[in-house]
Write a protein that binds this DNA or RNA. Structure first.
Length: 920
RNA sequence: GGGCGGUUAGCUCAGUUGGUUAGAGCGCCUGCCUUACAAGCAGGAUGUCGGGGGUUCGAGUCCCUCACUGCCCA
């Protein structure tokens, strides 16, 4: 005999064991299908790759819990289920991490090391620490295919990135040019629009007087950034602004500098803002840059890559931009040019990665011409080739796509995919090439220097849906692509909808159109998409609905909570609240509740183990052969409660299935919870105690019940398994061990997901059980009211129709067990008085000689009466309404009539009971 | 400024195409160590569905409006 389960559920003692087992046994690795894959039986999804520098946070855990539930569910349904994990090289984050490490060591800097040695260092860092986050995933039991794990800088993926760049360039979709970009002066690279956040801060609006060159007067401009005046090339006023008409075409003398600059008319100048006159600094402001273009103005750059003033000979040369501002304002004041300083709230662009204030900077960058790609991406969603859940993200996506800007894909970093372009030292031509070129294609010169920029990290992650399946740019259909592309689903957060989701759609639609279908035919847009569906989940907040943030200090570490309550409980908490579009307020109290749920199941398993043991000793054998315990044919003598539990199991299976198909993790989790605790444990386990008398002479009912008990529990474990993989794995193996059968699979995760059709669904027994449950609950309530001591059994009287009377009579053993009923007397008149209670289905009285609390009873009855009155009035109001009777569907009218009649009867009975109450 | 969402029990949230008298979990109150489980069992209380107006026989659900609130974009 197997060893007994410990008395209380202790997740720490089982989880690591199974997590390790799943990985070591390679249970979730999927080989490429040999023949043609059936798309309807294939479930493929890509894990949104966490940063290699990352640690798991609650958002990851929610994301992965949802993905894991879906993957485990599909796998158990027999689908080829591939969940591909990997990590992102995270250009900026990783480079920063290593630079910080260098700084801490204090011996060298990135610049001193040089590019090659530095990237070596980063690789070393990656080898040492890069698996931290995937190790956390392993611990949490994510059922990913580790054999397919990738890193975005892997040789194979890098080749694909290079190829896609070259092709986009050859297609004329990549260009290089000097534009204003968002410059992060801390890490000293351009970042994309998406990587910039705006923050409101208190600042000042400086009014500065610029004198006319002809000495005929002056004009006052307003600016929030006086230090950029060193790069001013004009002052703009609105052409409609009459205050400045006379100034147009004249020149101003730039204070402190002495340079002459023109006054130009431009619509951008807002007469309402400041003084209506704005300085124009094309190299340091995107709007000014546009003005400069319109008026053919030069764009002198006055800052270096650290955002320090770079103006040889200037007294401000070398100063940090904010220091320069102070000095310039002081000097302006001294020179009498500072008119006033007003308080002003300004919106500052801040780098998402470093927190540094972005410096708009004119610089040479690589761009991806996005419109042609966006057009296809818009079409793919409009035509329904990709479905969003919740649906409103379709609109968000569409809006963004329609207003999309060209994508700045170059980064001035050392860690990343280096752009495959070589500059010719002789003629300046750009050579974009798959292989390192030896001479310039234009002039034949050999002085080729590779571009130093790398590609935006999102460029490579945007290719993942096909690069992970072996796409190398050759348009060859690899076996993995044939079997697994497009993937079925992408589960992710809305924060990377534009960063990643939209880019995968654009790049997928672009490149995959050229890869043929498995049958050799031309691929259409419908099959070029990277995924069929996108499920966008919400944010995990703290228990008070506050966004988690390091500064607020309310960040919940999933690993800590998991250590405290178990992975299953945390997963269940997240799942039970994961309703599409709703943020999750994560509260430990709730997790505690789901640990209690796990404990409940644990103890149910112990109960079963004890019964199986008792059975064994008495010679009752149970067997659990196949894991798909199909119990469609119930023997005739099967007791009511067993018929009922099978029917309920069947219905719940259908409910869970439907909910999961709709991404209603909350509904699915709650259905399993309710079934396991509220029906299986609360009712079925109590009722089977009646049957499990292991007499020496074999009792058919006992044998049958024991078999059913084990079979229902085993199926329920499978139903719960996608949600709580650890405890179900443990108990499932323990159950087979108790029974003495070898388990039919290495893991419960490889068994069949229970289906509604697997179990007999006897509707009549459900109805009968419902009535009995109602009777039991009513009697329990009455007993409490009458003050019957818990342990004392009492007789009851029941008045009901023949069917219900017979039911109560035949199941008096249930009533005895669950409601302490000593005997059931069927009576012809409805019992009245203090110890009676009326329901729509029956009247019941508990026979007990004790004075009740008249005051409390009166209060209760009056409350009931009020409730019945209210209901009755509502019903009558409708029934007396001709329009309602005429127009409402018949079943609604009939239902209401029936209900009204029942309510009237209950009301009369309550009134009678009230009248019968003795005066106080 | 533009767009999207939310407001239902003390808390966190469900509520399917409008249809009978609005639900769950947690918390709360009362009584129980009933040999699977006190991380438990049994019973109980709790809502003018944000305000106002409209459509309809019928509105938590649809429309308008106001208030509060969150997010995204500029």
């Amino acid at each position: 005999m197997n060893q007994e389960l410990p008395k209380a559920y202790d997740p720490s003692s089982i989880e690591e064991k199974w997590a390790k087992f799943w990985v070591e046994e390679r249970l979730f690795d999927v080989a490429t299908p040999a023949g043609e894959a059936d798309p309807d039986k294939t479930f493929v999804q890509l894990l949104p790759p966490p940063n290699v520098t990352g640690r798991l946070h609650m958002g990851h855990m929610l994301n992965q819990t949802e993905m894991d539930i879906l993957t485990r569910w599909h796998r158990m349904r027999g689908d080829t289920s591939v969940w591909v994990p990997g990590t992102d090289h995270a250009g900026i984050a990783t480079q920063m991490m290593v630079e910080r490490q260098l700084a801490a060591e204090g011996t060298t800097t990135r610049q001193q090391l040089g590019r090659e040695a530095f990237t070596e260092r980063v690789w070393k860092w990656k080898e040492q620490y890069g698996s931290a986050i995937t190790d956390q995933m392993r611990r949490l039991g994510a059922s990913v295919d580790w054999s397919r794990e990738y890193f975005t800088m892997d040789e194979r993926l890098s080749r694909a990135v290079k190829e896609s760049f070259v092709r986009l360039y050859e297609q004329g979709l990549i260009y290089r040019g000097a534009y204003i970009v968002n410059w992060d002066p801390q890490i000293q690279t351009a970042v994309s629009d998406l990587e910039v956040e705006s923050e409101e801060r208190a600042g000042s609006l400086f009014h500065i007087r610029y004198d006319l060159a002809d000495g005929s007067g002056s004009l006052v401009i307003a600016t929030t950034r006086p230090e950029t005046m060193l790069g001013d090339v004009a002052v703009a006023v609105n052409p409609t602004d009459e205050r400045y008409t006379a100034f147009l075409g004249k020149n101003l003398i730039l204070p402190l500098v002495g340079r002459e600059i023109p006054v130009v008319a431009d619509d951008w100048a807002n007469p309402e803002f400041g003084t209506g006159a704005v300085k124009v600094t094309p190299a340091h402001d995107p709007n000014d840059f546009a003005i400069g273009q319109r008026h053919n103005l030069p764009s002198p750059n006055i800052m270096d890559e650290r955002a320090h003033i770079k103006l040889e000979g200037s007294p401000y040369d070398g100063l940090d931009r904010f220091e320069a501002r102070k000095r310039i304002v002081a000097d302006l004041e001294a020179a009498g040019h500072l008119v006033t300083i007003k308080d002003h709230t300004l919106t500052l662009p801040v780098s998402q990665r470093t927190g540094a204030i972005i410096e708009p900077r004119l610089s040479m960058q690589w761009f991806l011409k996005i419109q042609p790609l966006a057009d296809k991406a818009i079409e793919a969603v409009d035509k329904g080739y990709i479905k969003f859940t919740p649906d409103n993200y379709r609109k968000t996506y569409g809006e963004w796509m329609k207003n999309i800007h060209d994508w700045c894909i170059s980064r001035q970093l050392w860690w990343g995919h280096r752009i495959p372009a070589w500059h010719c030292g002789d003629c300046g031509a750009i050579n974009v090439s798959r292989e390192t070129p030896t001479d310039c294609t234009r002039c034949g010169g050999a002085k080729l220097v590779q571009e130093t920029d790398v590609l935006d990290t999102w460029f490579s992650s945007g290719l993942l849906p096909f690069t992970v399946f072996g796409w190398d740019g050759s348009d060859k259909l690899t076996p993995d692509l044939a079997a697994f592309y497009p993937t079925q689903l992408l589960v992710t957060g809305f924060d990377i909808l534009f960063f990643w989701v939209a880019r995968m759609i654009m790049l997928g639609c672009h490149f995959m159109l050229d890869v043929p279908m498995p049958d050799g035919s031309q691929r259409t847009l419908a099959d070029a998409v990277p995924f069929r569906e996108v499920y966008i989940h919400a944010l995990v907040r703290d228990a008070d609905r506050q966004k988690m943030s390091k500064t607020k200090g309310n960040v919940i570490d999933p690993i800590e909570v998991v250590t405290k309550y178990g992975t299953d409980a945390v997963r269940f908490t997240l799942a039970s609240q994961a309703s599409p579009g709703t943020d999750i307020a994560f509260s430990e109290a709730r997790t505690e509740g789901y640990r209690a749920f796990a404990n409940k199941i644990w103890n149910a398993a112990r109960f079963l183990q004890m019964q199986i043991e008792r059975g064994h000793e008495a010679g009752y054998k149970v067997s659990l052969g196949a894991h798909d315990s199909i119990s469609l044919e119930l023997p005739e003598q099967t007791p009511l409660e067993t018929r009922w539990i099978f029917a309920r199991l069947s219905t719940v299976c259908a409910d869970v299935e439907r909910s999961l198909a709709d991404y209603r993790f909350d509904e699915a989790a709650n259905a399993v919870y309710q079934f396991f605790w509220g029906e299986f444990c609360d009712w079925y386990l109590e009722l089977v105690k009646l049957r499990l008398e292991f007499t020496a002479e074999k009792n058919e009912i006992t044998a049958l019940t024991l078999g059913a008990l084990v079979s229902v529990f085993e199926a329920a474990l499978r139903l719960l398994s996608p949600f709580m993989p650890f405890i179900t794995e443990e108990l499932w193996h323990a159950l087979y061990a108790s029974v003495g059968n070898e388990s039919p699979a290495k893991s419960i995760a490889l068994t069949r997901f229970p289906q509604a059709g697997d179990f007999a669904n006897d509707a009549l027994s459900v109805e009968a059980m419902n009535t009995l449950q109602e009777l039991i609950v009513t009697v329990r309530g009455l007993r409490k009211e009458l003050g019957v001591p818990e342990k004392e059994a009492t007789p009851i009287q029941v008045h009901a129709n023949n069917r219900i009377s017979a039911l109560a009579d035949a199941n008096s053993d249930m009533l005895a067990r669950l409601a302490r009923v000593s005997s059931v007397e069927l009576v012809h008149e409805a019992p009245t008085g203090n110890s009676a209670r009326a329901t729509a289905n029956f009247d019941v009285a508990v026979i007990y000689e004790r004075q009740i609390d008249v005051v409390a009873e009166r209060e209760r009855l009056e409350k009931d009466l009020a409730k019945y009155d209210k209901g009755l009035q509502a019903a009558e109001r409708q029934l007396n309404n001709e329009g309602f009777v005429a127009k409402a569907p018949a079943h609604i009218v009939e239902g209401l009539k029936k209900q009204a009649a029942e309510t009237r009867a209950l009301k009369d009975k309550a009134q009678a009971a009230l009248d019968a109450l003795p005066a106080v």
